[in-house]
Amino acid sequence: MQSRSDKLKRLVNVQRHLEKIAEIDLASTTRQRQEASETMDVVVEAINSLDPVHRSFSHHYSNQYAKLQQQEQMLANVQQMHEMRVVRERTKGDRMEDRMKEARNAEDREAADDSIYDLIDQHIAYKTSDG
């Protein structure tokens, strides 16, 4: 039979894993957002270019830039959601870890109390058999 602290320890491990998943999702979204930003910079350079080839595609570039702006805004919202999720998962893990430590302390106190009671019982039994 598992103790309460052992069960909570397993839950803390699972919660820390969920926290890592949330961090990975956040990192992925941040990377995608960075890529979109870099692509937007390239498109702006092409729009502002004096090269005749780029001038003929300026309408296409402006449409592409508008799509990138929408994608960047969507990714910003997703990133914010992932940031909140990371904080929420970390907070849950911290709380669970605190509960696990409290449970372990309570179990240790109970074990110490039981040891003292056993010693007292042995002492009384020894005195009874001796006297």
Rank of each mutant, 00 (worst) to 15 (best):
N77K: 14
N77R: 10
N77Q: 15
N77P: 03
V78M: 01
V78L: 12
Q79L: 08
Q79S: 09
Q79P: 00
Q80E: 11
Q80L: 08
Q80D: 14
Q80F: 07
M81F: 14
M81A: 15
H82S: 10
H82D: 13
H82V: 07
H82L: 06
H82A: 09
H82Y: 11
E83C: 04
E83S: 10
M84N: 15
M84I: 13
M84V: 14
M84C: 13
M84G: 13
M84L: 15
M84W: 14
R85W: 09
R85Y: 12
V86D: 00
V86C: 02
V86S: 06
V86M: 03
V87W: 06
V87S: 12
V87M: 13
R88F: 12
E89P: 02
E89C: 06
E89G: 05
E89W: 01
E89L: 05
R90N: 11
R90S: 12
R90V: 07
T91E: 13
T91R: 12
T91A: 11
T91D: 12
K92T: 09
K92C: 11
K92F: 11
G93L: 04
G93Y: 07
G93Q: 02
D94V: 10
D94A: 12
D94C: 07
D94H: 08
R95V: 10
R95I: 09
R95F: 03
R95S: 08
M96G: 01
M96H: 08
M96N: 09
E97A: 11
D98L: 15
R99P: 01
M100E: 01
K101F: 01
K101S: 00
K101N: 06
E102P: 01
E102F: 01
E102S: 05
E102Q: 14
A103Y: 03
A103N: 00
A103F: 02
A103C: 02
A103K: 00
R104K: 13
R104P: 02
R104M: 02
R104C: 00
R104N: 07
N105F: 06
N105L: 10
N105P: 03
N105R: 06
N105G: 09
N105H: 10
N105V: 01
A106C: 08
A106R: 05
A106G: 04
A106P: 02
E107C: 02
E107Y: 03
E107R: 01
E107W: 07
R109H: 05
R109G: 04
R109A: 00
R109S: 06
R109N: 06
E110M: 03
E110H: 02
E110D: 08
